[in-house]
Structures are given as structure tokens and as C-alpha cells.
Design a protein around this nucleic acid. Structure first.
Lengths: 200, 200, 200, 200
DNA sequence: CATGAATGAGCGTTCATTCAT
DNA sequence: TATGAATGAACGCTCATTCAT
């Protein structure tokens, strides 16, 4: 046995698959292409993941992991209320810019999920994880004295809608001036939703 | 002879194709399926649209037409500044609720366009048409006395990002309470971006 | 009615068809391509020529016409025995160089005829026309005092074999030095087959 | 287990493909027909040869092998100059008579190559192999005392042109009297091109 | 784990041809 | 003559998947 295979083979394949999806798009990404991209025989995909659906499920899971990776750690040390509020969305957006291909794949999954039941569950799961982490942040913000005008679910809904909408813009047109301004506007709006007690 | 063929055959097929895309999703919608859906022989698609790409281009064009249909007429009679501002986004959203399948198809096109060059142009065209109509609205608002804090392009960017983000939410989870609240929040934010002169 | 259409429409189409065959090759030349090449609707082909086979038959006929056009006139005025012998093959070869595309089409027909019965008759007809004209030439040569060592059919066979073999070389590799020398050798051999009486 | 699979499956298919090409002609020989002829599923052709072009390339290679098979061995033992000269062309022609279908396929490839670039390379390769083997023969003839009036390339050109031209005649009309005489004439011409030293 | 071989189904596209006007 | 529409049959190729070793 090799001393320490850093990542397991299935995991390596999943990341290659995500890359392939980003390359060819959800619609044009066959198992053959994924296998080629991962430099693996296509039958190994069946060996590890069963069938196409099984692979897709795992891909979605992995996408979720990577979408939220870093987010938790990025907001761990924060303590002040404004700090928390500010860092939250910023950290989410940083991941968009850092891994646009990953978010393109996510968008593909979200889009496909509209008409694909088994995918819908997976995509909903990713949303739940987003939600969870945003709520944790809100909780910490409240404990630090943040007063939020909105109930939790609406807050999550608005943040995710903003994130998704701006991500679509970014994927469509790249880093434009308007997008930068839109981001600033959106963030300042988010800040305004939260009025810390101390400010009153 | 039928008295008056309401729409041309290609147009009828395009609408059937949009319906098929909504049914099966962009990735799983073959020409055969579109043909079956339109109750037309598969080869008639080639007869009318050349190849798959030609069909897709026309579909995108038709999607654009239908996304903006009604919008222009809906805002035509308005005169007061607040009226205009309010009706603008509301009218856009009404189309989402009225034709969710159409917007699902649009989302599919947007998503696929990320990795498909020829589609990208088409999707950009739809965005341009949205942009154009929003800017016309802004223009009319200004003439009616509206003061907009943002430059045109940023305004368009924010409105479209909000529209897209909320549409994704709607397509994913339907008409939830949170979404209703999010919509209200978003709209009140939009209103706040515009301060009528009278307020000064 | 236009005063004087120089060539009839079917004839114009046939020449365009020959050009298309030269362009795409016999195997890849559909009726659609021929129609496009002739700038005619494909159904006109059926109108003029019935079906694919009818068209091919006419094409073969036209190819035969053009292969031998000029040949008869080129050898008309000649009188001396050597003159006749020399000009004969030279004139045949000149047509190869002047119309290589035509000869490429001919080669395609000859090749296809091996497995296509209806074509075989047409191709045989072209060979007969070659034969006929070569024999006429031989006849005139004899009358001018040429003594030919070979019987007529063998002479024709050798000339056509040489012509075909060298044409294949020309079509494959163009005008090479070796081909020029081969031509010279072949011609000198032909001359040697014929010994004028005066030489004896 | 069968004792000894004589030839590999791909090779068996290639020979069946050549037979199919001889049966239907290059233009009318689809992959389906080749598959049927080889009693193999159509998709196995893709499995073994990739795509149509890959199959064609391999077919051409195999045609080349079989065109020259036997030739080398047939001329191996010969030693006398005239013997070598005589046996050379005779051996080439014997292959034509022994495998007329193979030569029909070759003619089809040659013809198609005129308008098909990828095929042209393959056909040129076959010609090169012919050339190589003819030159080896000439070399051996020279060592045995043969004096050749022509340079190598012209010799090859003439021999191949003769071979091709006479093959076309054979494929068109079968074994006629004239063809037999033409062959005799051609061979005696070839002999005359070579004057052994002893004659001097 | 890995590989050679196979398979039912479907892909987008083109073929020659015909019908009705 | 010419055109819009249609059709039965194939085309080359790829899909996800399975079997046997």
C-alpha cells in the first residue's frame, strides 16, 4: 500500500467529473467524457458509483462540500456584529470568484433539478447546507448584538437569491464594473437590514 | 381551408419545443422528443430549422419574445413616478408566476450558455432585450420626476440579478411564504433606490 | 422567351453535376449537393432526369461527349502517317491535362461501374466511343501507309490501358518529372508499333 | 477454447470489409453493410476502428498487404536477369487474376482518393509499397547483370501505369483475347527496356 | 481492481423520392 | 415549371450499461 494516498480514488474522480461538467456543460457531459477526463476506464465509474444517477448524486454532494468549504473557517474567528455581517456574504462571494467553474456546475445542477426529481433532492440538500451555515452566522451575529429586521428564512432566501442572481451575472459576463457596483449595493443593503443594538 | 391559421407552423413548433424543454430539461430534450411533443416528424425540424443549433437559436429567440411579451404593454399607460417604479418589477415577476415553465427553460438556456458559445450569444441577446426595456422604464421614470441613485447599467444589473435569484428560488421551491416576503423586501428596496423629486 | 439560351437547362445541370462529382467524389455526391452546385432545386433533378439512375446515365453520356470532344477535330486535318500516329495519343492526353476534373469523374464512373450493372453499360459505351475514334484513326493511318503490327482490338486495348494508367498517375500525383518521361516512353513505344512502309 | 484462432477478429473484419467493398462498391458500402458482411454488430466496428475514417485507413492498409502478399516470396529465389525481369510483372499480374475483387477495391480507393485527402495518403502509401518492391527487384536485376535504360522512378511509373491500365481493362471486360495479347505486348516491351550485359 | 467484448436504445442528420398545388 | 411539405429508410456515431474473465 502506498504510504498515504492523499485523496481516495473516488474523490479524485468526483473532482475530475466536476471539472468535466464545467468543461462541457451538464447537457454534453457523458460518462465517457467524465471517464476520459479522470483518466479512468468508464467501467470504473460504474464500479465506484453504480450508475449515472449514483454518480450524479455523489457529484452533487461533492459540489456542496466544495461550495461551503472555507466558508465555515472564514467566519470562525469573527466576533463584532458588523464584522460578522460583512464577512458573511463576502466570504460566499469570494468562493464564487475563486471557483467559478464550480459554481457553473452548481448552476447546471440547479437548472437540471427543475425537471429531474432525483437531482432536486440533491440540490435542495445543497441549499439546506447553505441555509444552515447562514443561520449559524445570523445566530452568532445576534449573540453579538445584531438586530435583524427579518425572520431567518426570509434572510436566507434574500441572501441566496442575491448570491445566485449575482453569480449568474458573473458567469454570463465576467467581472464587469456594473457587477462590482451591484455587489457593493447589495452588501450595503444587507448591512442595513441589520442594525446593531449598540448603534441605537 | 381553415379560415385563418392563427400562428405559422414553425412558430407552433417552437412553442411546443419550449414546452418539451420545460418537460424534460435542456439536457434530456432530444429533437425526437421535441418532434413528438409538437406532433411533427423529426425531419420536419430539419426542414424548418436546419440543424439542432438552428432550432436552438430560434427557440432562444422565441423564449426572449415570450419573456418580454406583455411587459411593454403592462407599463404603457403608467404615468406617476412611483407607479412606474412599482409596476416595473411587478410586471416582470408576474410573468415568472404566469409562465414558470418558460422561465425554467430560460434558466436552462442560461446555464447551458456558460459552456456553449453559440448559445451564449443568444442568451446575451435576451439579456440585452431585458436591459433595453428596463432602461426605457427608467427613462420614463426620470421624465416623471424620479431620481435614481444608480447609473443605468448597475440598476439593470441589480434588477436582473434579483429577478434571476428569486426566480431560481421560485423554481426550486415554489411559492413559499419566505419568497413572498423576499419579494416584498426586494421591491421596497427598489423603491428606496428611487426618490421622487417631490420628497426632496 | 429569351432569344437564344445557349445551352439547354438540362445540359447546364449535367455540367454542374460533373463539376460536383469532381468536387466531392462519386461516393459523396448526393443529389442535394448536385442541385446546390447547379443552383437548382433538387426536385428539378427528378423533373429532368427521373431518378438518381437516370441522372447518372445522362452524366455518363455527357462525360463521354466531353472526353472525346476536340479529339475528332484535332486529328481531322492530319495526313502523313507519322503525323497521325503522333497526334493521336497526344490529343487524348491533352484532354487529360486540360480537363483533369472530367477525367477524375470518368475514373469514378469506371470504378463504380465494376459493381454497378447499370453504370457498367454506360461506361462500356464510353469505352466503345474511344475505341471507335481510335480505330478511325488507325484506319486513316493505314490508308496513309502505316503498317501496324497489332490487330485493331489489341491496339485499342493497349492505348486505352496506357491512357488510363497514366491518367491515374496524373490524378494521384500531378505533373511529375517521371510522368513526363513515362509519357515520352509510352509514345515512342506506340510509334514503334507502327512502321510506315516508306521506312522499309 | 479453440485451438488456435488463426487470425485476429479485427483482421477477420477487415477482410470481410474488403469483400463487402468489392460486393457493393466504395460508394454504396455503408458501415452497416460491412458489419452485416462480417457478421458483427455495427458498433463493434467503432469499437475496433474508432470511426469510419479509422476503418477505411485500416482497410487500405490491409489492401496494401494483400496486394503485395506473395509478390516478395514469388521473386525470392530467382537469379538470372531475364528471369527476374520476366517474373516481376508476371507475379504482379497473377495477383490481379487471383484476387480481382481485391484489385477492384483498390481501384475504388484510388478513385475515391482523388477527392478525399485522408484517403489520398493511404493510397499513396500503397503506391510507395509497390514502388519499393519494384525497385528492390530492379536492384537485384542490376546486380544480376541487367542494364536498364530508364531511371528508377520512371520505370516504376511505367510499370504501375501499365499494371493499373490493364487492371482496369480486366475489371471492365474480364479476360478477353485482346487483353491477353496486350499483356504479352506490354511484357515484351518491358523486357526490351532491359538489355542484359551478355547481349552486348 | 481491471479489462476485452458486447448490447439495446437513441442521437442528429442525410438519403432519394413523392404529393399537392 | 416551380415550390412548400412530407416520408420511408439509412446514415455514422454515442449513450449508459452489462457480461465474463
Amino acid at each position: 500500500m502506498t504510504a498515504a494516498k492523499e485523496t481516495s480514488e473516488p474523490l479524485r474522480i468526483l473532482d475530475a467529473a466536476i471539472d468535466a461538467l464545467a468543461e462541457y456543460g451538464y447537457a454534453n457531459c457523458s460518462m465517457q467524457r467524465i471517464a476520459d477526463h479522470a483518466e479512468v476506464d468508464k467501467r470504473m465509474l460504474h464500479y465506484y458509483f453504480g450508475d449515472r444517477n449514483g454518480l450524479t448524486v455523489q457529484i452533487a454532494e461533492r459540489v456542496g462540500d466544495r461550495l461551503l468549504a472555507g466558508f465555515t473557517s472564514a467566519i470562525e474567528g469573527l466576533s463584532g456584529p458588523r464584522e460578522i455581517a460583512a464577512a458573511g456574504f463576502e466570504s460566499l462571494w469570494e468562493n464564487v470568484v475563486a471557483e467559478p467553474r464550480l459554481h457553473a456546475v452548481h448552476l447546471g445542477l440547479v437548472s437540471a433539478a427543475v425537471t429531474d426529481d432525483s437531482l432536486r433532492a440533491q440540490v435542495a440538500r445543497i441549499r439546506d447546507r447553505y441555509s444552515e451555515v447562514i443561520l449559524q452566522l445570523a445566530e452568532r451575529g445576534r449573540k453579538a448584538g445584531l438586530q435583524l429586521r427579518l425572520n431567518d428564512e426570509t434572510l436566507v432566501g434574500l441572501i441566496l437569491a442575491g448570491l445566485n442572481g449575482l453569480t449568474v451575472d458573473y458567469l454570463q459576463r465576467g467581472e464587469t464594473q456594473e457587477l462590482t457596483q451591484s455587489l457593493a449595493e447589495f452588501q450595503s443593503w444587507l448591512m442595513q437590514l441589520a442594525r446593531p443594538l449598540a448603534d441605537a
